[in-house]
């Protein structure tokens, strides 16, 4: 087991190098000169521009820039963004906000998706099932920014149940509405996945065995159907954590959440290579780790795929 985890950690090394190189190259290839863009409408001061280029290594060739960036990572000095603040500080500000948002979204989609999916699966073909299926289809079909603005306007502005935008502290009550918007798309997938999986397991032979033992309907569902049905759902949820963290850009934009997405968007626009690469690298690592977690959970839930063999 521990060798398995160690192996998986070693696999992170090429993933890390590949991801940083790729993202660095993409940012490098962006058209336009970021230093010129910094001056905005004002005339470019050649001396200042040259100094800035040197500071951000923009006068170096691509390979040199990348190697210098790698060096800065391993010396724990990520450098500064264009406004002069240490990138490490920036990461420390934005990641907790987005992590909070993503975990809230995950809890929302997990709890509601599994509960609704379970009920729909157990009542296959009934009114509840049909309603939930159509509703989930609608949610999947509508783009997230439409849903976001819709909920922001009705619940935030018209009904006043929640604040339409998030304060700079981004507290948990502030984030409830954005988390729901962020989790809605995945909620529909979790629901459908749970439903399919429950229906499949309801017809399994061991469920018939469980009924023939004399277990009540509730016991059969709780002990024999639910756990077996959750195996694919857990896999999806784990992989989705990474996707939620990186995919929060639109939602964060709508609700003005001071998180990763917002900062990344600004960094891409202004061509701040080191900031972009730093954020993306952390996202990649989170993605890899959540996948590792899923694989371990998988083995725990399903003894057939334990790693001891």
């Amino acid at each position: 087991m521990s060798t398995y985890i160690l192996k998986r950690f070693l696999q992170l090394i090429p993933v890390f190098l590949g991801a940083t190189l790729l993202v660095y190259f993409l940012v490098f290839s962006l058209p336009g000169d970021p230093i010129v863009a910094l001056f905005g409408d004002k005339p470019v001061n050649v001396a200042v521009a040259a100094k800035l280029r040197e500071q951000y290594h923009l006068d170096q060739p691509f390979w040199m820039q990348y190697l210098l960036y790698l060096k800065s990572i391993f010396t724990f000095d990520l450098g500064q963004d264009f406004s002069g603040r240490p990138i490490a500080t920036v990461l420390g500000e934005v990641f907790p906000v987005t992590a909070r948002l993503a975990i809230m979204a995950l809890i929302f989609e997990g709890v509601f998706g599994i509960v609704f999916g379970l009920i729909a699966g157990l009542r296959k073909g009934k009114l509840f099932d049909a309603t939930v299926l159509i509703a989930s289809l609608i949610v999947i079909a509508i783009p997230i920014f439409v849903l976001g603005f819709l909920l922001q306007f009705t619940i935030g502005v018209q009904l006043g149940w929640a604040k339409p935008t998030v304060s700079s502290a981004a507290t948990i009550p502030d984030l409830i509405l954005p988390a729901i918007v962020l989790g809605l798309g995945s909620f529909a997938y979790v629901l459908r996945l749970t439903r399919t999986s429950v229906i499949e397991n309801m017809n399994a032979d061991y469920v018939r065995t469980a009924t023939a033992k004399g277990l009540s309907r509730f016991q059969v569902v709780r002990v024999h159907i639910l756990r077996n049905s959750l195996i694919p759902v857990i896999t999806f949820l784990g992989a989705d954590l990474g996707a939620l963290m990186g995919g929060a850009i639109v939602t964060e934009g709508i609700f003005n959440v001071p998180g990763v997405g917002n900062r990344l968007y600004r960094a891409v626009l202004s061509g701040e290579g080191p900031t972009v690469v730093s954020i993306v690298t952390v996202l990649v690592l989170i993605y890899c780790l959540s996948n590792l977690l899923v694989d371990l959970l998988y083995g725990w839930l399903d003894p057939r795929i334990r790693y001891d063999s």
């Binding site: 032979d205 061991y206 018939r208 469980a210 023939a212 756990r227 077996n228 839930l301 399903d302 003894p303």
Partner: peptide, 11 residues
């Protein structure tokens, strides 16, 4: 039951 492969819960 007939199928001992599937009649017991695998987990």
């Amino acid at each position: 039951f007939q199928e001992p492969m599937t009649a017991l819960n695998p987990v």
